[in-house]
Design a binder for these strands. Structure first.
Lengths: 108, 108
DNA sequence: ACATAATACTATATCACACGAGGTATTGTT
DNA sequence: AACAATACCTCGTGTGATATAGTATTATGT
């Protein structure tokens, strides 16, 4: 029941992981590890979904005899990240509602 | 608002809605409407779940001939809300990662 | 040389859950 | 009489996270 909020950020985190530089599955998992531990069986379906939604494109390349599929964010993917930043205001409104009356100074 | 993010906030929002004062299904839906639109078929299973998890208790009462089930938050429910506030630091770390490099001054 | 870990992707089965659609029943309004 | 609002509930469906298992190569340790 804990950390469910973070699950909602999965798609966006994956997009963020390839935002500046193309990356591949295995690397994305390791890059995101400090933020959210995500398993292969979680990531690959997400990548498929994001590809279907045309938020990223895929290109295969061989690296040391192993296949690698590099994922590249699309224009739509970048727009999705921008939209997320906007949506965050709504999320913060909810956060403020939930924590109303508490004197935690989370937001200065 | 993104359905995925919303999903992670549902349980916590319901707890927040009964935090200060006992409430009932129909009222909770209307109270939360400004923050998040939640349907009856979404809310009632959540209330059942929260009751099973002992984060709230239920008491039936008649009001103008109609049945009302009042939900009251438990100690564990209040602790859950506290835990959420703590988790938020991690969520903000994710947010900052996702929006890195953007000059939106969302957090002053 | 052999075993194990790390790299890298895929498929399948399962469980949780949000939500539309539909149901019951009373009170208030037009 | 008709309809909206109040107030509860259930079922079916689709989406999605994740465990488990499989395939295959390279690197590391013993």
């Amino acid at each position: 029941m804990d950390a469910q909020i973070k699950r909602g950020l999965l798609d966006i985190l994956v997009l963020a992981a390839i935002k500046d530089e193309d990356s591949y599955g295995y690397s994305i998992i390791k890059d995101l590890k400090p933020y959210l531990e995500i398993s292969e069986s979680t990531l690959y379906p997400i990548l498929k979904r994001l590809e279907a939604a045309e938020l990223l494109t895929v290109r295969s390349a061989e690296h040391n005899g192993r296949l690698r599929k590099y994922y590249k964010i699309t224009k739509a993917g970048l727009l999705r990240l921008d939209a997320f930043a906007d949506e965050w205001q709504e999320v913060m409104r909810i956060y403020n509602y939930v924590t109303r009356g508490e004197d935690k100074n989370d937001e200065a």
